[in-house]
């Protein structure tokens, strides 16, 4: 009955399309791309997704903010009592073991929480992902970044601990953001690869806790790097970015451990490659995600 009635026709200016909209092309398999432009365009959304992950977690739990502090503190106590006191695992050059282990645990906990949440983030957001479009890498990215809040809160415990043991951070502490960034990149790389592969192989998520556990033993958190022979130390620093991060944290905060050098730079470069490769792989896999539910 109804056809285009005259009052619905557009004013001529709009028919000309002079304010032409920003057009996009949707194709079957877009060439593999990092999609960095899309990510940047949605930077505001990244912030929202971080808030979305953080707020509810603290809003309705009894301990609330405490949950950011309890795990590293508990681990510190366990390490100090069982590993240091009874098993005789040493600290480094006379640093009290509790602060030695806690400074490493801070960094480790951030990585472990970030990587675990990031790797499982696609499944956790399935409902969201199948109903609305946005650049998908934002999901693991925001899961990792949300763990930064826990790190910041855990720092509030470190400050009195350092004061208690009489440590004042020096200028080196200003390099901390660089190590936090490296830990972020490492967690993101793990998240991207596992989340992307998990689209095809769901049970991969179950392997994450094991991976993290093994990784903890390969990282000088509970023990000093100096337990290894020299050559091994360098190899570990290059191959394991978290070794670089943990050592870096101790160097920046306590002025001990390996001074960051070329192995740290090499480790950072490798991690960056892993992140970019992960992003490519993720972008390729996520396109099938909505269909695999």
């Amino acid at each position: 009955m109804t056809t285009v009635s005259p009052d619905r026709a557009l004013p001529p200016s709009q028919m000309l399309g002079n304010e032409a909209a920003d057009l996009i092309l949707i194709e079957p398999r877009a060439r593999v791309s990092l999609g960095l432009g899309e990510l940047w365009r949605h930077r505001e959304l990244a912030w929202f997704l971080v808030l979305r992950a953080v707020k509810p977690r603290y809003r309705q739990t009894v301990l609330g903010v405490g949950w950011a502090v309890v795990p590293p503190v508990a681990m510190m106590v366990v390490f100090s009592v069982f590993l240091n006191r009874f098993a005789g695992v040493p600290s480094e050059s006379g640093i009290p073991y509790p602060i030695f282990s806690f400074s490493g645990l801070l960094a480790w906990q951030y990585f472990a929480v970030g990587a675990t949440r990031g790797a499982g983030s696609l499944l956790g957001n399935a409902a969201f992902l199948t109903k609305i479009y946005f650049p998908r890498p934002l999901i693991p990215l925001s899961a990792v970044l949300a763990a930064l809040f826990d790190l910041a809160i855990a720092f509030l415990v470190l400050v009195p601990l350092m004061a208690y043991y009489g440590y004042t951070p020096g200028w080196a502490a200003l390099t901390l953001p660089a190590f936090v960034a490296l830990a972020t990149a490492a967690a993101l790389a793990v998240s991207l690869w596992i989340a992307a592969a998990g689209v095809q192989y769901r049970d991969l998520g179950l392997a994450v806790p094991l991976l993290i556990q093994v990784w903890l033993f390969a990282t000088p958190v509970a023990y000093p790097l100096s337990v290894f022979p020299d050559g091994w130390q360098t190899a570990l620093l290059v191959a394991n970015p978290m070794a670089t991060v943990v050592e870096g944290f101790r160097w920046a905060l306590l002025g001990t451990g390996a001074v960051p050098g070329w192995p740290s730079a090499a480790s950072a470069a490798l991690t960056l490659v892993a992140v970019l490769g992960g992003l490519l792989f993720f972008n390729r896999m996520e396109r099938t995600y909505a269909d695999e539910i």
Binding site: A21, L25, I26, E27, T130, K131, I132
Partner: peptide, 12 residues
Amino acid sequence: ITPPTEGRVVLP
């Protein structure tokens, strides 16, 4: 939300 298998779409 989901990519096409063939063909293409142009839209804002």
